[in-house]
Write a protein that binds this DNA or RNA. Structure first.
Lengths: 138, 138
DNA sequence: AAAGAGAATTGTAATAAATACAAAATTAAA
DNA sequence: TTTAATTTTGTATTTATTACAATTCTCTTT
């Protein structure tokens, strides 16, 4: 279920993000890995191509992406943030054993809207935790 | 919507938790505040009654409670954990402005069960973020 | 009541994710 | 080319949480 983005540079520009080399590389990494990586995974996977890359840049860039709405920051355990390039509303399942995050095809029912009369909703999130099928079958 | 627990000690014992003074006090604080407090709020609110209380004890105790299933740990922002004494399945709304967390009467639809065939689900969570009605009306 | 074992509490130190910040580097504009 | 603006980098800082060992408490057994 890899996100289809033909032209990385164009995609960044379209979202008012200057397409610098680190930004292109970080976006590429996010598209490449559909595993909802954390900062370290992204950082480490790019060190070959961008040896001078700083981890701060990865943090900065992901924040820029989040501000621009092209990544979703997944907070599930509190230990670390995970990043999702797929911005269509959906849920997640995180395995307590392998830490993998898989997508769930789910959206929050509109029933809640009635409960949140007069509230401004910026974000709706759904996730489950447990043990994934792969880990269970080992 | 304050949780009704008649006998604190009995409630702890029933869940195989030795009712020590700090544990009783921390449970009382959780029931008293239905604001989904964080560790610091709990700690500070108890310093009068328990001047020797250590913050580590608050952490330990909340972990004990979570293990025993009598509190839910809410991870919404990643900045800090919030604690909910209400263990019935429901969702939350966190205000970006006042940091208040309110309850939502919502449960995850069983549709996801079909997507998670062969998975062991331990936890289902729903939350929204935005600006609450009080903050909007200021 | 005293002793001893086991459990809980405490305080300090350590861990680690994320941010602050200022200097250096890069890019864009004039 | 010079200048201005933006981005990147590295280090230092912040802060929530855990690790851990020492102390205190509790409960049982003598």
């Amino acid at each position: 279920m890899k996100k289809q983005i033909k032209d990385i540079v164009e995609y960044l520009v379209k979202h008012n993000i200057k397409p610098s080399y680190p930004r292109i590389k970080i976006l590429e990494a996010l598209i490449e890995k559909d595993s909802h990586p954390n900062v370290d995974e992204i950082y480490n996977s790019l060190l070959k191509d961008a040896p001078t890359l700083s981890k701060t840049t990865v943090y900065n860039t992901l924040n820029v992406f989040a501000e621009a709405g092209i990544v979703k920051v997944l907070i599930i355990d509190g230990k670390e943030a995970r990043y999702d390039i797929d911005t269509i509303e959906h849920g997640h399942f995180k395995c307590d054993n392998c830490d993998n995050i898989t997508d769930l095809n789910i959206s929050i029912d509109d029933k809640i809207i009635s409960e949140l009369q007069g509230f401004k909703i910026k974000e709706k999130r759904v996730y489950c935790k447990g043990i994934c099928n792969k880990c269970l079958s080992i």
